[in-house]
Write a protein that binds this DNA or RNA. Structure first.
Lengths: 335, 335
DNA sequence: CTGAAAGCGCTTACAG
DNA sequence: CTGAAAGCGCTTACAG
């Protein structure tokens, strides 16, 4: 069929069907006012030529791509250290698909790729962008805000910016699980916060303090969402507060690291120290003992983000500019 | 600056700089034969207008997008149940970026999205596609093979197809770790293979048999890369072969499930039964006891895939059409 | 060194 | 119901 080289265009289809290319375009786009016989001839010609519409040409003409990009800062194991990213992407992909859009995930791993992704977005390669796991002061976010393509974010990258957002209830979730920990009789609680650059860090810490009240005896930050960071934080906290009896970690992997250190230090979980995490990542249930945590419904967050972004593309008013997704405490054996 | 609506085009820049839009295009594309003063005027005009080139227009003209798509079949926790996907994407992204391409990840979660992704690719939205975690008989792969955009795959989706590929040494890795298990004195080995639809399944099983020889007493397949599947498989195997003393699982998560069941059945690891996995996923080291496994360098695989796809885009001859990435046995405490 | 012109492959008023 | 024409925003020979 093909010459091994250039693909067939609308003109080729038109020639085979014996009509003008405008007519081919009409049947392709499902216009009603086309004679049935003509439509059939065109459909046949499309099959015999193996024609597929050129996306760039269509985009240039209609000024849209039917595509939404999800942008995330990446490191080698993003999807492991940021356990919410995978279900969030999955949820967004699902809902976007239902609305007729294809989601494309862009991983930003260097200033150069930030530059490239920024040019793609600003250059109209996507109809909208969902921003995830970005830092508080990401230059890419700043650049995108100067453009007028629809933006939406998981959490709030720029405090005070008006980018619509959806996020799990960080404050409420941290408060609820901390209260539960207090209710089990723990009275000397420490918190392992997330990295300072993560927008959720202050929120989860705030929830911790709301729930712990006087039982809070200290907290520390980490430099990343890794188990090693959780281990370092726990060692430090243990040294500063040898009498602690409860740990509230800002993520399950941090909590896992904390339990390791506690165990090596001879403190049993949950007998001597109660430990709780956040996210209900797959690793939570695998822990020994299984980790009590906050089940944040990242998939629901992804779905909400997709709905918000689609509404913006369509120029609709958003019912809420900042959606908070409720979550539940999952109480297992670690506390 | 902007009217809140349409973005500036090359003509706007040209007007501000007092030149023709052809000249703007020349400085934008770094052509040498442009007068320094002209170049400066254009650069200034670009800044003051906030101009960003329209990607669709450029793509239509130059017939390329500087973009490569990585396509993966998805389920809610792909990145957890397929632990190689994340580092593989990371490696591909890194190398593609060095070559000047942006990687975009497309998650296929339904026939509809397969259709959509197929149309995007066939419609020229990307310069090439990397196929990952596809089943042996994916209709999307079949469709893409009829197109002539460069394709590359992690593992071989169509046995006998000539899509270039890169993959970890599945046979060799499984053989090596099985031999090691035998060397520790185990003589009644069973294997938990992967899902039947996964291309790696027969390879890892083959390696198991090569390494186990007469020590192989049975094996079973699973229906997915999940811990639950590993648990079911282990229960079945334990019933059929109560005297087994070694388990070779096709992935770390399957091995984790197997250890759970063994533990519940009163068989200690490694004292009574030695267990080994594959991939060296993050979960491997977290296990209790830490899991012996094969460290498959998924990042290196991603880098190789990127190199191969770029070579094809450039029309270069591939040094090898099927690259095998070596891996190492990581011996920990589970066997 | 620079401009006018053609054309990449589509869609969509505008006539008829 | 259908065709001829314009134009989306670029790049690149072709002249000069």
């Amino acid at each position: 069929m093909s010459e091994g080289t250039s693909r067939p265009t609308m003109h080729d289809v038109a020639r085979v069907a014996g009509v003008s290319h405008a007519t081919v375009s009409r049947v392709l786009n499902g216009h009603t006012n086309v004679a049935p016989a003509t439509a059939r001839a065109v459909a046949d010609a499309i099959v015999t030529t193996g024609y597929v519409p050129n996306r760039a040409a269509r985009s240039l003409r209609v000024q849209s791509t039917d595509t939404v990009v999800l942008v995330a800062r990446e490191n080698v194991n993003v999807f492991y250290t940021e356990p919410t990213l995978s279900p969030m992407a999955s949820g967004a992909n699902l809902r976007l698909s239902e609305h007729g859009y294809q989601m494309l995930l862009a991983l930003v791993d260097s200033p150069r790729s930030a530059e490239r992704v920024g040019s793609l977005i600003a250059g109209g390669s996507f109809d909208a962008a969902i921003l995830v796991a970005m830092t508080n002061e990401d230059p890419l976010v700043a650049r995108l805000m100067t453009t007028n393509i629809p933006l939406v974010t998981a959490s709030t990258p720029f405090p005070g910016s008006d980018i619509p957002s959806a996020d799990t209830d960080n404050v409420g979730g941290a408060r609820a699980i901390t209260e539960r920990l207090v209710a089990t009789g723990r009275s000397k609680l420490v918190a392992i916060g997330g990295p300072a650059w993560a927008p959720v860090t202050p929120m989860r810490l705030e929830g911790f303090h709301q729930g712990a009240k006087n039982a809070a005896i200290g907290h520390t930050a980490v430099d990343g969402w890794t188990m090693a960071a959780g281990q370092r934080a726990m060692s430090e906290l243990l040294e500063r507060h040898p009498d602690l009896d409860g740990v509230v970690a800002a993520s399950d992997l941090l909590a896992t690291g904390a339990m390791r250190v506690l165990n090596e230090a001879g403190r049993r979980t949950p007998q001597d120290v109660g430990v709780v995490g956040f996210d209900d990542a797959p690793v939570a249930a695998l822990n020994d003992p299984p980790l009590s945590t906050v089940r944040s419904d990242a998939r629901a967050t992804g779905i909400a983000l997709a709905d918000m972004v689609v509404a913006q593309i369509r120029g609709q008013e958003l019912p809420q500019r900042h959606v908070v997704i409720p979550n539940d405490v999952v109480w297992r054996e670690s506390a």
